[in-house]
């Protein structure tokens, strides 16, 4: 449904600042009906990528296909299939009510508002906005405005919905509600949704697949499930009583996969990242050579946050 090929964007430097490479050769594709999370720290290039998909920022190089149509060549046709809620969910008029906003933006996307009254009502109910459907948008709560912003994107019937930080600044409850609605919509309507976030919990909870970006590059692209697994299985923590001998330390340090995490007189913790399972046995062998007592071997409990930090901060590459 979406294909992005070697996308690159350098912002011209302003006022004597050097030019900024925001997106550096990003490639990915998203099949129909997938809920993809674009995860990365602030400044990773998520917003830039999304805006390039929307045709609002011109890339230096690279190509974007939406449903087979190339964005730069047939902009209008490609954009007909895309709706977006961009940074700060400002895709609505503050002085119009939710209903009026939905009608206006439907017309903007070429849909006769008179023909979708039923649908508008249905969505307003479902997003629990019906009661406020005739209140000006500026008077709604943040959470409600956010829901309206998403509704405005949904009402266009576009096949692809892009959401830039859809839960940013929301309280836990509102954030939860929005994630739930998104999952339902994708499951029912088979629309393709790409959401960006810097919050790993959102991805872990909502998305099937995650692309992790850092400094404008894709550093991981896998199902959320796999990524979690990968790291969970791969890291073991071996704790022994007492200190390491110099020989043991030298052998361990010569192994790339091993990190001596903690060395105290009474206890030493060694963490092992496994590429092959033999490594763990080898480590156990080394540790056992001094008649050290192995107190425990733990599988590290990894949550998504750890995986994310490991990839982003450790510079690990999992693609």
């Amino acid at each position: 449904m979406i294909q992005v090929e070697s996308l690159q964007k350098t912002y011209p430097g302003r006022k004597g600042q050097p030019a900024c490479r925001a997106v550096d050769s990003i490639t990915f594709s998203v099949p129909k009906g997938q809920l993809l999370g674009l995860l990365g720290p602030n400044g990773a290039g998520k917003t830039t990528t999304v805006k390039m998909l929307c045709g609002l920022i011109l890339p230096d190089t690279g190509r974007i296909f939406v449903n087979g149509k190339e964005l730069t060549r047939s902009r209008i046709a490609a954009l007909a299939d895309i709706s977006a809620v961009l940074e700060g969910n400002r895709n609505m008029y503050w002085r119009l009510t939710p209903r009026e906003n939905l009608e206006f933006f439907a017309a903007l996307k070429g849909i006769n508002p008179a023909k979708i009254r039923g649908e508008i009502n249905h969505y307003l109910e479902r997003f629990r906005l019906a009661e406020k459907s005739d209140v000006e948008a500026r008077k709604l709560s943040r959470g409600m405005q956010q829901k309206l912003a998403i509704l405005v994107a949904l009402i266009s019937q576009s096949k692809v919905i892009l959401l830039d930080e859809p839960t940013l600044g929301l309280d836990v409850q509102a954030s939860h509600e929005i994630r739930q609605l998104l999952k339902e919509i994708v499951a029912e309507q088979g629309r393709t949704v790409i959401l960006t976030t810097h919050d790993m919990n959102v991805v872990q909870d909502t998305c099937e697949r995650v692309i992790i970006v850092n400094q404008g590059r894709v550093v991981a692209d896998d199902s959320v499930h796999n990524l979690l697994d990968l790291f969970k299985v791969r890291v073991y923590k071996v704790t022994i009583a007492g200190e390491l001998t110099g020989e043991q330390r030298a052998s361990l340090l010569s192994m790339e996969e091993v990190l001596i995490q903690e060395e105290l007189p009474h206890q030493t913790v060694v963490s092992v990242r496994l590429e092959k399972s033999e490594v763990l046995y080898e480590v156990i062998g080394i540790l056992g050579s001094n008649n050290s007592v192995i107190e425990s071997i733990d599988q590290e409990q990894n949550n998504f946050e750890r995986v994310f930090l490991e990839i982003v901060e450790g510079g690990a590459q999992v693609v």
């Binding site: 209008i76 895709n91 933006f105 903007l108 070429g110």
Partner: peptide, 18 residues
């Protein structure tokens, strides 16, 4: 300023028509 200009650019009509 409101951020709606970007939406107008994403219409099914060219921005000139909008």
């Amino acid at each position: 300023q409101q951020g709606t200009l970007e939406q107008l650019y994403m219409s099914v009509h060219s921005f000139g028509w909008v």
